[in-house]
């Protein structure tokens, strides 16, 4: 009975959420899938010639920052394994972690460690697979003539202590903060590794969730400052150096540029056969040197350092 009610609700929710356009992320599919996604493997009646043919379907939900990569990799994987169906959905890191923890999806994509969002015992059940690294940079409107900011200057800006660019060596122009919502994984990463502190939302700051919108607003608003993943950087915004260190792949890989995060793909317990094959495929050179680089992430194997959840850095 309870299951039926949940199912009805899930269906209803799917429709309503889809209808009210919760689709804020770039191509992010916000609608929650009904709670049915377990492998629909129907054994083929005729004996298959190859003994180990992968069959089954898996569902990966979560982070919209990671979605393009998983999406592209899953397409290539499905081309190679005709019996496998992989569905990739967005919805945000929180959604991904919730669903994988509750068993609704097989893989939960997240920008943050599960321990930062879930209860300790729930997070303990999840197995982390770090597939790539994404770095973030502070960006400003192109007309702002400041090239580098120190950690303290960034803290002053994002806590509202400094409100004019002239105090930072720029023109007399009011600073407009383009932030992410306080629940966002991107914001959590930026606050943790660039500012080193949590910040309150400020009156008059603008908050957007989608990186595309953030870039558009920063590019158009005089005196705007925000932060973006490296894959979103282009000529419409100006990238700042952090403490004098330029935000690029090399500096991230050798550990001099600290503002980056792992992209996680969580499974509940050890992954099943299909999910494991897919996760293994994510770590192959084909994906790590192909889709990962192409889409602006940094391959996990390129990192010369590792960092644990507390931020302790060890050389590889």
């Amino acid at each position: 009975m309870k299951k039926t009610v949940t199912l009805i609700m899930a269906i209803v929710l799917t429709f309503t959420l889809a209808a009210c356009g919760k689709n804020t992320n770039n191509g992010g599919n916000a609608s929650t899938p009904p709670a049915t996604n377990s492998a629909s493997t129907e054994p083929t009646t005729e004996p298959t010639p190859e003994p180990k043919k992968l069959e089954g379907s898996i569902l990966a939900t979560g982070s919209s920052a990671l979605q393009p990569l998983v999406d592209q990799a899953s397409k290539a994987f499905m081309d190679a394994n005709s019996g496998v169906t992989i569905q990739v959905q967005g919805g945000g890191s929180g959604t991904g972690l919730t669903q994988v923890s509750e068993g609704q999806s097989d893989i939960g994509n997240s920008d943050v460690y599960a321990e930062e969002k879930l209860d300790a015992d729930k997070a303990g059940e999840l197995v982390d697979h770090q597939v790539a690294v994404v770095a973030m940079a502070a960006v400003v409107n192109p007309k702002v003539n400041v090239d580098t900011l120190t950690k303290q200057q960034l803290i002053d800006i994002f806590t509202g202590k400094v409100t004019n660019w002239k105090d930072l060596g720029g023109d007399d122009q009011k600073i407009v903060i383009i932030n992410r919502p306080s629940s966002s994984g991107t914001r959590a990463t930026f606050e943790k590794y660039a500012l080193g502190t949590k910040t309150d939302d400020l009156q008059g700051s603008i908050q957007e969730d989608s990186s595309g919108t953030v870039r558009k607003i920063i590019g158009e608003t005089p005196g705007a400052i925000g932060y973006l993943a490296l894959s979103y950087l282009d000529d419409s915004v100006k990238t700042l150096a952090y403490d004098g260190v330029a935000a690029n792949e090399e500096n991230v890989a050798n550990g001099t540029y600290p503002v980056w995060a792992y992209e996680h793909m969580y499974t509940k317990g050890e992954p099943n056969e299909v999910a494991k094959a897919f996760l293994d495929y994510m770590m192959t050179d084909e994906v790590q040197d192909g889709a990962v680089v192409e889409l602006g992430y940094i391959p996990a194997k390129k990192m010369q350092i590792t960092r644990d959840i507390e931020g302790n850095i060890t050389k590889k």
């Binding site: 804020t24 945000g92 969002k117 879930l118 629940s183 008059g204």
Partner: peptide, 17 residues
């Protein structure tokens, strides 16, 4: 910059557990 009930929901719903 201001906020509405709906915009607060859509901004954060996907990011929260």
């Amino acid at each position: 910059s201001a906020s509405t009930l709906t915009s607060a929901i859509t901004l954060s719903m996907g990011n929260t557990v």
